[in-house]
C-alpha cells in the first residue's frame, strides 16, 4: 500500500475495488453506531419507566383514597386505614420554604459578595470550601444537626414557650435550618456560575458611569443574572423538598400538623421511607405512599418545566432584542 501511494499515478488514481471495499458496510461500525443510538434511547426509556412505574402505583392509591382526602385530610394513620396527606405536605412545604429563607438567600448574597465585592485572591479559596461543603453527604449534615442543632432548638423553644411546653428540639425549625445548611453550598456554586456569566463589559460600563462596586453589583450584575439566580434558588428548594434521611433524623416523626415550629412533625419523603418498611406491596397502604411520591415528582417536574420556560423566555427576548439591533 505504501508503495502505491508513493507513485504519482496511484495518488491521483484510486482503484475502484478499493473504493468499494472502503464503502462496504463494516459490522463493528454498525454495532457501535447502534450502541450509541441505543444509549440515547435508553435515557428516554428509563425516564418513561421511572415515571410510569411510580404513576401506576400512585394512581391506584389515589383511586383507593381519593385525591381530596389525600391532599387535604388531616390525619395520617396507615394502621387505621386513614390517609390524610396534609400534615406531610405541610411539613415538606414549610421546611423547604424555611430552607430557602435560611440557606438559599444567604448563599445568594455570599455569592454576590464573592463574585463582585471580595478581593480576587479570596475567590478560589471560598469556592473550594463551598465545593467541599457541597460534597458532604446529607446524612452527615443530618447527624451533625441531630447532635448539635436539636439541643439548641429545644433551648430556644423552652425560652419561647416556657419550661412546661410540649416541645422538643425536633421539628420543622430544626429541619428547615438543617436543609438550609445543606442546600446553601449548592445554591452558592450555581449562583456564582450565574454571576460569572454576566459579561464584564456591563460592569465596566457601569463603573465608567461612576457607579460604585456596590451599586454595580446590585443594580447591574444581579438583574443581569436574574433568571439564572432564580433557577439556582429554585433548584435548592427542590432539593430541600426531596431530601429524606437527613430530615428524618431531626423531624421527630409525628404524623399531624404541629402547633409550632418546635414540635415533632413529618414530611412527605420521610413518611414514605418510614411507612414503606411496614407496608405490604400492592395494598392501599403501599400504593398511597406512591401517590405521595407522585406529589414530589409533580413538584420536581414542575421545577424543570418552570426553569425551562424561564430559560426559553430569556432566550427569546434576547434574540428578539438581537433581531431589532
Amino acid at each position: 500500500m505504501s508503495k502505491s501511494v508513493l507513485t504519482a499515478e496511484a495518488s491521483t488514481f484510486v482503484p475502484a475495488e478499493r473504493l468499494r471495499a472502503s464503502a462496504r458496510p463494516r459490522w463493528g461500525e454498525f454495532v457501535i453506531r447502534g450502541f450509541i443510538g441505543a444509549c440515547g434511547l435508553f435515557v428516554v426509556v428509563a425516564t418513561v419507566a421511572v415515571i410510569t412505574f411510580i404513576a401506576r402505583a400512585g394512581v391506584r392509591g389515589i383511586q383507593d383514597v381519593g385525591l381530596a382526602q389525600l391532599l387535604s385530610g388531616e390525619i395520617w394513620k396507615p394502621e387505621a386505614g386513614t390517609f390524610g396527606g396534609y400534615p406531610l405536605i405541610f411539613g415538606t412545604g414549610i421546611s423547604a420554604v424555611g430552607a430557602a429563607l435560611v440557606g438559599a438567600l444567604p448563599a445568594l448574597l455570599a455569592a454576590v459578595w464573592v463574585s463582585e465585592l471580595a478581593p480576587k485572591s479570596a475567590r478560589p479559596i471560598y469556592r473550594r470550601t463551598m465545593e467541599i461543603a457541597a460534597a458532604v453527604p446529607s446524612v452527615v449534615y443530618g447527624w451533625l444537626a441531630l447532635v448539635h442543632l436539636v439541643p439548641q432548638a429545644e433551648w430556644v423553644a423552652r425560652a419561647l414557650y416556657g419550661e412546661e411546653a410540649q416541645v422538643t428540639g425536633e421539628g420543622l425549625a430544626s429541619s428547615a435550618v438543617l436543609l438550609g445548611i445543606m442546600i446553601a453550598p449548592t445554591v452558592f456554586l450555581l449562583s456564582l456560575d450565574a454571576l460569572s456569566r454576566v459579561p464584564g463589559t456591563l460592569r465596566e460600563a457601569s463603573a465608567a458611569l461612576g457607579a460604585s462596586s456596590w451599586q454595580t453589583a446590585f443594580r447591574v450584575t444581579i438583574p443581569g443574572a436574574g433568571r439564572s439566580l432564580f433557577t439556582a434558588v429554585f433548584f435548592g428548594f427542590a432539593r430541600a423538598a426531596g431530601e429524606t434521611m437527613a430530615v428524618q433524623m431531626v423531624i421527630g416523626g409525628a404524623r399531624r400538623v404541629p402547633h409550632n415550629l418546635f414540635e415533632p412533625a413529618t414530611t412527605v419523603s420521610t413518611q414514605i421511607v418510614m411507612d414503606m418498611q411496614n407496608a405490604t406491596p400492592n395494598t392501599t397502604a403501599s400504593n398511597v405512599l406512591f401517590s405521595m411520591s407522585l406529589v414530589l415528582l409533580v413538584l420536581s417536574a414542575g421545577v424543570v418545566l418552570i426553569s425551562r420556560l424561564i430559560g426559553t423566555w430569556g432566550r427569546s427576548t434576547k434574540s428578539a432584542k438581537g433581531a431589532k439591533a
Binding site: V50, G242, L296, L297, S300, A301, V304
Partner: peptide, 9 residues
C-alpha cells in the same frame, strides 16, 4: 427530568 427527580423517587 431525571436530574430533577428526588432521590427517594
Amino acid at each position: 427530568t431525571l436530574a430533577s427527580l428526588p432521590s427517594i423517587v
